[in-house]
Nucleic acid binder design. Sequence first.
DNA 1: CACGGCTCAGCAAACGTTTGTCATGCGACC
DNA 2: GGTCGCATGACAAACGTTTGCTGAGCCGTG
Lengths: 353, 353
Amino acid sequence: MATVFPEVVVDTPERRSAVTLQDVAIEAGVHPSTVSRALDPANSGRVREATRVRIMEVANRLGYRPHMVARGLQSGRTATVAFVAADLGNTFVTPIIHGLTGAIEGGGMMPIIAETEDDHNRLTWILDHMLSRRVDAIVVAAARDGDREILEASARIVPMVIAARPLEGSALPHVIQDDHDGGRIVAEHLASRGHRRVVQLKGPSDVANFPRRSAGFSEAAGLAGLTEVSLDAEADHPIVSEGQRLMRRLIESADPLPTAIFAHNDLIALGALSVIRERGISVPDDVSLVGYNDLPMVGHLSPALTTVRYRSRDVGEAAGEMIVSLLRGESPESVCLPAELIERASVASSESE
Amino acid sequence: MATVFPEVVVDTPERRSAVTLQDVAIEAGVHPSTVSRALDPANSGRVREATRVRIMEVANRLGYRPHMVARGLQSGRTATVAFVAADLGNTFVTPIIHGLTGAIEGGGMMPIIAETEDDHNRLTWILDHMLSRRVDAIVVAAARDGDREILEASARIVPMVIAARPLEGSALPHVIQDDHDGGRIVAEHLASRGHRRVVQLKGPSDVANFPRRSAGFSEAAGLAGLTEVSLDAEADHPIVSEGQRLMRRLIESADPLPTAIFAHNDLIALGALSVIRERGISVPDDVSLVGYNDLPMVGHLSPALTTVRYRSRDVGEAAGEMIVSLLRGESPESVCLPAELIERASVASSESE
DNA sequence: CACGGCTCAGCAAACGTTTGTCATGCGACC
DNA sequence: GGTCGCATGACAAACGTTTGCTGAGCCGTG
């Protein structure tokens, strides 16, 4: 049985602009290497002005476009930065990508994205893949405790910056926010509003941000004489449903409820809030609530959520600048951005004394 | 003046795993081409089983990692998909990237990201750059009216999918949502709740979603006998501050206010809401408000925002699947996802009659 | 007038793969 | 027993750049 149209492949007439450096060279009557130099601002000094102009004219006329893959093979640089996130579904990461993109695009670099889903094996696979792609650098915003070795191994091959999530016990360059201090200012804020019994809804302890927030909070709480109700559970992931789970557990186990709750991030706070509401409890009249991250829009919640601002765009931008610096052969300082409390309506004064 | 340490460059001992196909070949005592075939599942049939096993053992022992840049140069494929967004600051895009990544990573493909900032010249530059990088396909979620020609020109060179924002008058494969119908269901909902005088807070008309929403709304409003208060302005960009501007203008120009407002997206709705509040007007008691997109968290606003759900994750995923299909040489059907109204608390019944 | 140095451009060797073609050796079939 | 075909693997030519080296002219200087 014969195929109807065996050679129907002649479907794409001029697919892939085939014009190459070679073509330009021939048309301009020079050698390819001369074209290469003429087109590279850094080397165009090695070419006579008249020749350069002629070459550029030809290049434009022919619609020449550099072949970055070929260039990458020869030069070893791909103008590509890997960005590894934990969860691309989290609105927290867009601003990081935004900042990163802005910081690196000046050099013609662009980010290439992957997502670990907080799975160590996936992280390993992704790093391997990124190394195969010969990215110029890697930004990891998905570090967890068990990931240190694999990350440091990769960092020995290609420049790496740890962002957003600290990597405990590692000397890799990083740009993070001061979570310990973030925890502290929350505790002090609650104390200053007269709260005495407080509780934390903790994020997963293998993501270093959360133990740090926890420690900062507990230390300051102790100093301020607060009593901290302990909950024998932490969130498996920093997401809404886990916030709901923790909040239910708290309601079952603590009677009376503490007067203030510190949720380790806004999503957990949101989950807690929904459970609180469905039980007919009022925020902030019956219980105060503090989140973390200041996600877009939590200022418009009812009540507007008091939270710690996390400047994720700045984190992405700083990470990008650090990459650029690293690539220049410099040794940039790690960055630790300050935490900042955003006071809104979800914390009330406690009349408990 | 002599440089202190001229040859301090010996700083990176084993930077870049230098082990190449060549190395594996020598160690295994075969020709590089044999290694290449042995490692490629599609061609490993051309290699004796025993040889294949030996080669793989050597490759593992040496820690061989394929050099995707070299492969890309030879094969013409880079396993890379360009994703072009308008504004990476918008939480709307993360889910799109999420869906896209999930759909293409099966084939080892990864997205490379850029942002137009709704600037035609930037779009042009980005497309050029992506073509230089020899991406295998491009997903554009940033189309505006004036972009049609440049997009179609690029689409002649590399497979392209238009996502999220329709491109009026173009036959390029696309995956969008039915904005016209979205506008319709909003109007019908308002009518069914007894509203008679309504108004639109329009998004920029060069982004095709908005005229479509507008048309769908107006047609259905006409059919339902609603009178539409017209506002002689539209948002320059679909962002909060523009929503505020439009709302102020509406308050100045319309007396009395219509009983219901259709904001063309949630951000505009949010801006409107903040102005409404600062004037002491109540939503939904004095005026009802509908948004569009169902951004994460608008369900937790006060009042919870009635809005049209935009399944941006699904859009990203469908776009990714379409890319995969296109790359297989197929001709996938364009996708138009249905709009769905999410009724919440920001729309009340009107007792206006 | 010769020679040193500078400017300009060509030559060719990489960079690490993939892939079409060719060579060898073997068993099988007629 | 000769030829055919198949399995296996080597060879070499790409893919489109960049870059160190070489060399031809030219100018100025001694």
